[in-house]
């Protein structure tokens, strides 16, 4: 019976057969509906028309069924909570509350301290290593190319860490500094 129906279903899908009775029987039978759906998915996949997320399992109705069936464990009753708490209980509740807050804040403070410590440690550690050194001829007693036209330092390329623009800017400012030192003699 089922086999025949499946064949009918298949031919209906392919458009070879249009029979009102077959359609009615399919609509009545849940199993055949599932087959109808499955065939379509299979066909679409074979023809590459389907997105990957189409293939997700439809488990919603299964889950709903399971939830209905499941017997939940005994819930605590509300009754005991509605009784008025004693004074000692109140104090206990309060201290518990305060302790909880304390521990939260304490934890936050610890985290803050830790972060500060790490930052300090890292900044301390990086101090010594990460100093790119500008590689120019020290002017000192050198006759500095203060005139601006000079290309005394041009044979020394700046390090990669510094762009040409920054290098030129700093060189110009060093020249200005050296010039000002010479101009401002008393």
């Amino acid at each position: 019976m089922l086999k025949v129906q499946q064949e009918q279903l298949s031919s209906l899908m392919d458009g070879e057969q249009y029979d009102q009775d077959t359609i009615d029987s399919i609509l009545k039978d849940d199993e055949l509906k599932q087959y109808w759906r499955r065939y379509h998915v299979a066909r679409d996949i074979m023809q590459g028309r389907l997105d990957a997320d189409y293939l997700t399992f439809d488990i919603s109705d299964k889950v709903a069924q399971l939830i209905e069936l499941e017997d939940l464990p005994e819930q605590p009753t509300v009754v005991e909570q509605t009784t008025l708490p004693t004074l000692s209980k109140l104090i206990w509740l309060k201290t518990k509350d305060v302790l909880a807050k304390l521990s939260q804040v304490g934890l936050a403070a610890c985290v803050t301290l830790g972060v500060i410590g790490i930052v300090q440690y890292q900044s301390g550690a990086s101090k010594a290593n990460d100093i790119p050194v500008l590689n120019t001829v020290p002017i000192g007693v050198n006759l500095a190319p203060v005139g601006g036209v000079g290309n005394v330092n041009n044979y020394e390329q700046p390090l990669d860490t510094m762009s040409n623009q920054q290098y030129n800017k700093i060189r110009m400012l060093v020249q200005d500094y050296e010039l000002q030192r010479r101009l401002n003699v008393q």
Binding site: I131, L134, P138, I139, G140, T161, M162, N164, Q166
Partner: peptide, 17 residues
């Protein structure tokens, strides 16, 4: 965009950007 943090020491001269 070219300005980066840089410390260089050349003899007695220090340059800090």
């Amino acid at each position: 965009q070219y300005d980066k943090v840089n410390l260089s020491i050349q003899g007695d001269r220090s340059i800090y950007s």
